[in-house]
Amino acid sequence: MADLTAFQAWIAACSESITAHADDLTELDRAIGDADHGSNMKRGLTACAALADQEDFSSIDAYLKKVGMTLVSTVGGASGPLYGTFFLRLAGPLAASEDVSAREFGQALRAGVEGIVARGKAEAGDKTMYDAFSPALEAFESAAGSGSELAEALRAAADAAAQGRDATEPMVARKGRASYLGERSAGHQDPGATSATLLIEAAAKTLS
């Protein structure tokens, strides 16, 4: 079970992790994109991590909505609307919850991932963040469905996200700027799948 403090710790951990890996994300983006994913995500999550000190939030969903709006207005590029939509939709199913169970988080995660699909229209295998989010959601639902607690289900989700991220390396991109490279996009791990995995790994460390 995770309360508002745990969710705020998650976002703080996201910010720490993205900041620590900002240069790696930018390097990955340099290979098949435009070398700004690390700096953009770092700017956005730094702003999100500061929210907890700037404002008193009355609920988890109000907090996550503010995180989503902050990402939309600070990240830019495609990542801003996509991650922003993820957190905005994540908030929906948690509206009445003060202490989130594995089952509730599963509903929220599904809503968040579906939001990414609605905004970005990506499919599995397009070499995008969805290739990390999709297996993570599947693993989470499977674990939670067989009775795992939140932390355990998130661990399974993080492992699945990492596998999904690694699987993007040989893929030929079909969405976003990397798609302009055609076959030349193969052989590089996708930056979006990489940052998505960092966010889910941060959840596994903080939400329990």
Binding site: T26, A35, R177, L181, R184
Partner: peptide, 28 residues
């Protein structure tokens, strides 16, 4: 890119990149 500090892609002195966009992304 100013924040990145180094070139977005590599191109040797005797090479050109055909089909580039406007964001320093490599071409075809």
């Amino acid at each position: 890119v100013p924040a990145a500090g180094k070139p977005t892609f590599e191109l040797a002195d005797d090479e050109m990149e055909i089909g580039i966009g406007i964001h320093g992304e490599p071409g075809r």
